[in-house]
Nucleic acid binder design. Structure first.
Lengths: 340, 340
DNA sequence: GCATTTTTCCGAAACGTTTCGGATGCCGCC
DNA sequence: GGCGGCATCCGAAACGTTTCGGAAAAATGC
């Protein structure tokens, strides 16, 4: 492959000046810069990233360390995330390293190895939990990263998130506005920050309507179809609390809720109102359900582009405060709710 | 981070000797080697891979360039592949770079960029087609790679494959042995090498039973449930060729075939025999169908480990002939076939 | 006891890039 | 004519590793 030295020989310039021309430095004649760029194209020059990385300390590579998806339901999100991130980083000319660990392995140790070998200069963190050890570690080592979500307390890092508090608040308020009092909430696994935010929003909206929060109506679990199905049946069993409305944490849960209510012979909207948060997973659209599902909508796939550019900006040393972005959420009132 | 120079200072040895000790060269006293290793552990030494790569020309990173999966059905295979490869390479201490391209982008150009910037020193090639341009390019540039599958003609490269010819031959022979004459074959998209191999095996088995191949009974398409369903209905329509047996190229197709036959009121085994090749995708097991499906079985997930180690061996300069491996296929005769 | 081999070590160069500090020539200005 | 300022360029060092060629010390052979 052509090197800077080749270019400099070919152009009768010093290696220094060729490097500076290509990297857009100021002290190079615009005319010679044009010559250099032309020659670079002609000789198919590609900078050797190892050499560059060695001197700059930066590798041009970012990474994601994740366990494999557990259930088949998790596949859709996993694929969405992986391919979205990879494609977005590719667009930003950044290499994307994927490291799938087995579930019992310590993610922090893997991050440490990748940093110490100077292989990566930034990370994507997904599924943050409260007091996330990965975030604590990266913060200590002063390595740039971007989080998909937020922590509860101080978010002194780049993140992309949606307002999960508002999501749960809005869904709950919609139901209380229709007169519902006993509202079940099928939430995600405890510990995840968005799950906790949603719980807070839910409780606040209940309180605003003068309703006390009944812990028995709040259920945690993996966000898949099966969870929606089994918890709905448990809730509706004779002798159980039998809510008049159900909030599903995502579309897979909502599908399970629909299945269960149909199996139990309960009519959606007339007997039980259902709302959900819709992250637009492929294969489950709110409009195509019957009756069409009322949702807050925030496409997951629109988060990977921003995530990538936030991390790149963080690598470029932009101040953290400018790298905290919220995705929009829109409310769609459809046909799955009835007035009590 | 600790460097070789730090170690050499700490030990009173030269940088050279420390490097040689750590890399297992012969001309270093076993006692000093032990000392060096101990010190390396103590100072948490991690070699800077950029520096190493710069001098050796090797990066310790391999890559996979793929388009995103098209349908939801493709998700399972994609996840299986990505996480299997990533985990396997991690085990071999090799970094795994994932580059998801958008479908209209030229994969060869991406490979070229990755090679020229010295970012990668080996590739995984999946879904090879006849006259695959990626393989031609990598061969020309003399870059190591491992293929999941084979080409028709000369396979002068590392590969992992199953005997697709034998798979189709065995499934077909099983059916002809039961007296079937009109056997439909729901195969994958044309051009893929395994699709062509299977076609050849199928035709050969038919010929061995004295049956001419009827092109109308051979259908190509994307290997998903919908393809199995629609093609089965087309085959069984009045006025159509109405086979007495159907071979499904994988389990997703088989699920579609089962759906269609049930919808048409045709009994599996009694009215129509069904066999399939089972690559053990999650969520579709041959035993749990009713009636249990007769298959050739070759778990896809068992191919990623071998793929990874084959590529690593290829990087180490092992001769190609030792790097061509075939996965085992076993035949399970279950309850989905009837004698004619 | 001397020559020869073997073992164990080391200095220096190299990989391709960026960057620091300075050099050169040219211009206008007092 | 001397001086400062500007635009444009360059040499050399540095990043951390591997490796080539050789050197010193120890062991062996006669």
């Amino acid at each position: 492959m052509a090197t800077l030295k080749d270019l400099s020989r070919h152009l009768g310039l010093s290696v220094t000046q060729v490097s500076r021309a290509l990297n857009g430095h100021s002290d190079v004649n615009e005319q010679t810069r044009a010559r250099v760029q032309e020659a670079a194209k002609l000789l198919k020059y590609q900078p050797n990233i190892s050499a560059r990385r060695l001197v700059t300390g930066r590798s041009g590579t970012v990474g994601l360390v994740v366990p494999p998806p557990v259930s088949t339901d998790g596949h859709a999100v996993f694929v969405e995330m992986i391919s979205g991130l990879s494609a977005s980083f590719a667009q930003q000319q950044v290499h994307f390293l994927l490291h799938v660990i087995n579930p019992q392995e310590d993610p922090v140790a893997v991050h440490r190895r990748l940093i110490d070998s100077a292989a990566l200069d930034g990370f994507v963190i997904t599924d943050p939990v409260v007091n996330d050890p990965r975030i604590a570690f990266l913060r200590k080592r002063d390595v740039p990263f971007v989080v998909h979500g937020r922590l509860g307390d101080k978010n002194d890092f780049a993140y992309f998130d949606i307002d999960n508090y508002a999501v749960a608040h809005q869904l709950t308020a919609h139901l209380t506005g229709l007169g519902h009092q006993r509202i079940a909430f099928l939430n995600g696994v405890p510990g995840r920050t968005y799950v906790e935010s949603r719980l807070r929003g839910h409780v606040a909206a209940l309180a605003a309507a003068g309703i006390a929060h009944d812990p028995d109506l709040h259920r945690n679990g993996m966000m898949n179809r099966n969870f929606g199905l089994t918890e709905t049946i448990r809730l509706m069993l004779p002798g159980s609390c039998r809510p008049t409305a159900i909030i599903a944490g995502n579309m897979l849960i909502a599908l399970g809720v629909y299945d269960a209510l149909q199996a139990l012979g309960l009519r959606i909207s007339a007997d039980v109102s259902v709302v959900a948060h819709d992250d637009h997973l492929p294969g489950a659209t709110a409009e195509s359900l019957f009756p069409a599902l009322t949702t807050t909508s925030a496409p997951l796939k629109e988060s990977w582009g921003p995530m990538a550019s936030l991390l790149v900006q963080a690598l470029d040393g932009q101040p953290i405060e400018t790298l905290q972005k919220m995705g929009g959420v829109t409310f769609f009132d459809r046909a799955s709710c009835g007035r009590l």
